[in-house]
């Protein structure tokens, strides 16, 4: 499968990334080279193989639903690029 420049631009949008025109060209080339290698998997018939999503096939792990102290607000705000006393500040969301 080959990926086009337009598709790469669409993927960038989905991934919330921006690229210059020349970066898009480079990426399209790189991605095609890598995807071409990935197409190797089509040599294998996997029609009856159950997908393996995890190397150790554990069952659901449950814990008791208890109320416990969590990260303090002042700690959570410590690394914020922009904040006031209580909240993270971001650019205006609703116009």
């Amino acid at each position: 499968m080959a990926v086009t420049k337009a598709e790469v631009e669409k993927i960038a949008e989905l991934a919330r990334l921006e690229f210059s025109e020349s970066e898009i060209e480079h990426l399209t080339k790189d991605m095609n080279q890598i995807l071409h290698h990935m197409d190797k998997l089509n040599e294998l018939d996997t029609s009856n193989v159950e997908p393996l999503s995890h190397p150790i096939e554990v069952k659901n792990v449950f814990r008791d639903d208890e109320l416990k102290p969590s990260t303090k607000r002042e700690d959570a705000l410590k690394n914020a690029p922009d904040k006031d006393e209580e909240f993270f500040k971001v650019p205006k969301v609703i116009g």
Partner: peptide, 13 residues
């Protein structure tokens, strides 16, 4: 891609 690779992952395991 993704599902196919998960299937091959099982074969490798």
């Amino acid at each position: 891609y993704y599902k196919k690779a998960q299937q091959v992952r099982r074969k490798i395991k």
